[in-house]
């Protein structure tokens, strides 16, 4: 019963529930598998994967803010070859867990090569195209702040990908709707939004930025209203599903994202505070549907703006 009321179809992907951990906040699942069976998750969005191994930024890499945190990890990952031969192979043991691989790069060729390789892996259900990482000097966000560049990259990825492609949008833009529409037109199967907001903190004692990278991406409850607003705007202008993310830490938050127009959600920073947060939210969602007198969670998608 639970499964059917919470099941969502995301661009052809059948998820038993709409809750997944967000990329970058859950590694490749190994750490949190010590706490619960990952098969409980609707899906898993794994750490950004690049063509070559990346060592990331110097430390400190995190700084706290009221209701949020700044991070500047710098896309540290073992590179596509090891992700395929070790991490994705390890994830095969979870037979009821769709895997979404977040891919990143410095050049279009990098992105295309990672997409080509990863999308051919037997247990990868979708790609999440990371054109919005604020913490790397080239690539990442530079692809995500211009509609034409974002659309070009999406087109190239779609040519090689064997699985649906979700484009992860940056909130650090003037008009997110124009970028969303551009990547939809370029063939994106769905959108992930939002990535982190570019921010900064300065230490009063040292008078210098806390983060070694100086700037970092803001996440956590502090960014939720921005995410809700952007999903609200974009979902009314596109016909592809949206995975909503940005400060989710409860079933109530999930409902709010659905009302704004999301068809699924990703939970990020909240995993650090409570390793059990994803299964807790999944358990709580159904009683929220009861409370709201809703039969199926998909009835809530965009209900905030649908007349």
């Amino acid at each position: 019963m639970t499964a059917s009321r919470l099941a969502v179809n995301l661009a052809g992907l059948q998820l038993k529930n709409p809750v997944m951990p967000a990329s970058g906040c859950f590694g490749f699942g190994r750490e949190y598998s010590q706490f619960y069976d990952l098969n409980r998750l609707g899906a898993i969005a794994v750490k950004a994967t690049t063509l070559e191994v990346r060592m990331g930024n110097p430390t400190p890499r995190v700084a706290e803010t009221p209701g949020g945190m700044l991070n500047a990890i710098g896309l540290q990952n073992p590179g596509v070859e090891k992700v395929m031969s070790e991490e994705l192979v390890w994830l095969k043991q979870f037979r009821d867990l769709p895997v979404i691989v977040n891919i990143a790069g410095t050049t279009t060729e990098d992105y295309v090569e990672v997409a080509r390789q990863v999308s051919a892996a037997p247990n990868v259900s979708a790609l999440e195209l990371n054109i919005s990482c604020p913490n790397v000097k080239c690539g990442g966000i530079t692809f995500g702040t211009d509609p034409i560049v974002a659309a070009e990259l999406t087109k190239e990825i779609k040519k090689v990908s064997k699985v649906p492609v979700f484009v992860k949008l940056s909130p650090n833009v003037t008009d997110i709707v124009s970028i969303a529409k551009a990547v939809e037109e370029a063939g994106a199967d769905g959108l992930s939004m939002i990535n982190t907001l570019l921010g900064m903190r300065i230490d009063l004692k040292t008078r210098k930025p806390i983060l070694a990278n100086q700037v970092g991406g803001l996440s956590g409850p502090a960014v939720k209203p921005v995410a809700i607003r952007m999903i609200w705007q974009v979902s009314q202008q596109v016909n592809i599903p949206i995975i909503g993310m940005g400060g989710i830490q409860s079933a109530e938050d999930v409902i709010e994202f659905f009302l704004a127009g999301a068809s699924a959600v990703a939970v990020g920073t909240a995993n650090f505070v409570d390793p059990y947060i994803c299964p807790t939210i999944i358990d709580d969602l159904e009683s929220w549907l009861d409370k709201m007198g809703v039969n199926h969670i998909s009835e809530l998608i965009g209900a905030g703006w649908k007349s």
Binding site: C25, G27, E31, M55, V62, N71
Partner: peptide, 26 residues
């Protein structure tokens, strides 16, 4: 000691470099 995020090894906030010849690079 280092500023930490998750505390369980998932977020990669608190890394340090491994010395040459170590099993891992970080």
């Amino acid at each position: 000691e280092q500023r930490m995020g998750c505390g369980v090894g998932a977020c990669l906030a608190c890394v340090c470099s491994a010395a040459e010849g170590s099993e891992k690079s970080y």
